[in-house]
Design a protein around this nucleic acid. Sequence first.
DNA 1: CATCAAAGTTAGATTAGTCTAAATCAAGAC
DNA 2: GTCTTGATTTAGACTAATCTAACTTTGATG
Lengths: 234, 234
Amino acid sequence: MTTTENPVHGKGGQHITPIIEDYLKAIYTLEQREGQVRTVALAEVLNVKPPTVTAMLKTLANFKFIEYEPYRSVELTEKGRLVALEIVRHHRLIELYLVEALGYSWDEVHEEAEVLEHFISEKLEARIASYLGNPTRDPHGDPIPNLDGTLPDSPSVSLADFPPSARVLRVVRIRDQNTERLRYLAKIGLMPQTQIKIVAVEPFDGPLTIQIGTRKTPLDRQLANLILVEEIES
Amino acid sequence: MTTTENPVHGKGGQHITPIIEDYLKAIYTLEQREGQVRTVALAEVLNVKPPTVTAMLKTLANFKFIEYEPYRSVELTEKGRLVALEIVRHHRLIELYLVEALGYSWDEVHEEAEVLEHFISEKLEARIASYLGNPTRDPHGDPIPNLDGTLPDSPSVSLADFPPSARVLRVVRIRDQNTERLRYLAKIGLMPQTQIKIVAVEPFDGPLTIQIGTRKTPLDRQLANLILVEEIES
DNA sequence: CATCAAAGTTAGATTAGTCTAAATCAAGAC
DNA sequence: GTCTTGATTTAGACTAATCTAACTTTGATG
């Protein structure tokens, strides 16, 4: 065996595993949510210990999926971002498909998609997207990345940031994957596309009161933060 | 670290991996097809070297999935058979689902199912089965194992074993996963449920001539061997 | 600007699954 | 009955992903 490097893959990385995909997705998500990617944060998200993350960061850097300066920073390269977005696309397409074609409720889809996202072929991805009419949103209102790695634009004003007014708001997205909370929201009728009004806002970051249809409901401020809305054009 | 064994899993086996599932499925298939399971045969089917098989056989024996006598024999236990059949069930349900719900053709489904069979949840399996009306056959006519590990009965007379006669035969199953040959069979219109007659049989294991609808086609004897038929009751 | 706690990395070990090379066994041929 | 050949197993090494324990770096605090 000579020491000649494989010209295609370069040293280190042989092929992309589901675990590598998980790391890239987690890095992508943290970049979006926190603006930075820290080792402990990654370790928590991925349910591993920090040294495991460090080891994998080196692998990812060898693949040229990230730029990595030890003790300093982690940043996805274009190449890494594309892989992450492909997995996110799979995830969200699968979630929507399970709801539309197989009668899943929106609180059931996350776990299933979390696994299958790594294993559907390009062909199955295409058939699912086509069956769904090339959608841009999953059941939680999360944008589905396009094939080329671009994202459909996505309003991002939190319900918690609106002052009460007579204006009607449309729920566009719910940034939560927790089964219990999603079930609760479905029960009170608060889902993407639902139209609501803000009736009152308690001071000192207290709960909101919102109106869904004709019914008024109090809504925890933390939860309101995860609900993205837009004003309805008239 | 004490040497106390885990009372649940026993020594050796921690949890069932997709690779373990592949070995069990391969052992099951060889038991059916050849009556015995040989190390080299397993190695060929699974695309690994014989020593790798030997190593895994020990693991499977620790799990109590097989009875294993070195140099002698390999046999699935009831426990191992149930796991194998569950994976076969997944495989065949997925194949049928891809055809029925997503417009796959029967020569495209095998590869996709080969991967996904390891990753669908019980819930998804149930939804798919229910969507399909709890079917007993996949697109190739292969029987879909029941949840309890029993198999729907399945006629097993090969087309090659019938003498020519005026009798009408129904194709029930095609024991082949090869894309090219399946495409060919679909092109000449020979699929499960197709009704045919045997017009002639060349001697010395020569080709058959069969009639599909009004058209007569020659059919290679090897291929005829893989096609299972039953006589139509009148 | 020296200190120190938290964050991050290094070192070294473990497990699952794989390999090659070498040894051993089984079963038919003589 | 012995031999030989092909099948099988053993021995030992490798890779990916993980861990714990120990060390290093960073950056905020006084």
